[in-house]
Simulated assay, not measured.
Amino acid sequence: MQQALRNPDLSIILVNYKTPHLIIDCLRSVETYTSGLTYEVLVVNNDPDPSGQAVVLNAFPGTRWIEMGYNSGFSRANNRGIAESAGRLVLLLNSDTLLIDNVLKRCADVLDSRPGVAAVGPMQITREGKVHTEAFDGFSQLRRYFYIVPGSGFFKRLLHRFLPDKRYADPNEVDWLIGSFIMTRRETIEKAGGLDESFFMYAEDVEWCWRLGKQGQLLLLRDAFYVHLEYGSSSDYQESKVTHINRFKSQMHVSNLLWVRKQYGAGAYLVLILHYLTLIPVIFGWKIAVNLLNVRNPFSQLDNQRAFARQVGIFLRFFWQTLFNQKGFYKV
């Protein structure tokens, strides 16, 4: 059983939002597989339902439970956990994760033995052991995904030309690490700063890794793994129906656009907004033309197009705030 420690090697920070049972499963895997380093666990609670505290603490009484008092999102909750933690190393760990071996010690050893490394994480796998191949680890990969273009090779090549991937000599080095598992040093956080609290959820890990990367390498260990169940606390912010033009989830993309503005400037942000605004008449016009060619009501079957227009409307709610990079709480 985990015991409270004054100076642990590692502080493990989890955020709770309707996931106390997932947290218990996660902590059982930590307890089962972790050896060779001392650690403390801090759970930062974003859930207004108070029942989760007893559930977690009954199973793991050594856990430190921190109340936020409201759904503060990922950045603010983790920053609170970082501020109240004591380890020389800090791990942000999602509640919907499971360890399968002593990966915490391995990551800690990398940080202890390689001062040029700023942060480290393992590969995500499913419960069945399949690697999450759709996960991005490059800034340009993510930015290319934001452009809605025909799926032909020409447009893909064009995007690759204007947004090329960065190449590293070390095959494990990446632009960013998924926020479900990021281990770094406390001193690195002190230099880079904590997570940006304008982000409610999503993309805060990308922006944070941009700043962590200025302090050293970010390593994704290709032969180390952890299970990421997806999705636990973020289930309220997921949409099940996905199409080519409606691939974005509202909260996720509001945060993505904020990241683009912060890292690449107002010009890059405006190009994306103009791209989406231009698409609205294009996709409506295309569907109306298809309907006419098929001798249908020209204004039938436009649900997908209307959904995209509504999405753009949500993005535009945050337009001026994002354009001027104003501090706030970018919550849909």
Score class of each variant (00 low, 15 high):
Ser113Phe: 00
Asp165Gly: 08
Leu221Glu: 04
Arg114Val: 06
Phe318Gln: 08
Thr19Tyr: 00
Leu163Ser: 07
Leu323Thr: 14
Phe225Ile: 13
Leu229Thr: 14
Gly87Asn: 03
Ala118Thr: 05
Ser29Leu: 06
Leu323Ile: 14
Leu104Asn: 06
Ala83Asp: 14
Phe315Gly: 06
Ala224Met: 14
His21Thr: 12
Pro171Leu: 11
Ser140Ala: 15
Phe60Ser: 13
Ser75Arg: 06
Cys209Phe: 04
Val117Cys: 08
Pro150Ser: 09
Asn291Gly: 01
Ser180Glu: 15
Leu98Cys: 11
Ala59Pro: 02
Trp176Asn: 08
Val332Arg: 10
Met201Ile: 15
Asn7Phe: 06
Phe155Arg: 05
Phe181Asn: 09
Asn246Ala: 11
Ser234Cys: 09
Lys156Thr: 10
Ile100Leu: 13
Asn58Tyr: 02
Pro61Asn: 09
Tyr168Cys: 11
Ile13Glu: 11
Met201Trp: 04
Tyr269His: 10
Ala192Val: 07
Phe329Lys: 01
Leu274Gly: 04
Gly194Arg: 01
Gly81Lys: 01
Arg157Trp: 07
Gly153Glu: 10
Asp49Pro: 00
Asn256Met: 13
Tyr70Gly: 06
Gly216Lys: 06
Val254Arg: 05
Leu219Ser: 02
Thr19Asn: 02
Ser113Tyr: 00
Asn102Phe: 02
Val254Ser: 04
Pro50Asn: 03
Gly138Lys: 09
Leu272Met: 08
Asn45Val: 00
Ala169Gln: 13
Pro281Arg: 01
Leu159Asn: 05
Val271Pro: 04
Tyr202Ala: 14
Arg106Phe: 07
Val227Lys: 01
Ala119His: 02
Pro298Lys: 03
Leu212Val: 12
Thr126Pro: 02
Ile288Ser: 00
Leu42Trp: 02
Leu323Glu: 14
Asp236His: 05
Asp303Glu: 15
Leu98His: 08
Phe308Ile: 04
Asp236Glu: 12
Asn102His: 06
Gln326His: 05
Gly129Glu: 06
Phe284Asp: 02
Gly87Gln: 05
Leu91Phe: 02
Val56Thr: 11
Gln217Val: 06
Glu204Leu: 06
Asn291Cys: 01
Val227Thr: 01
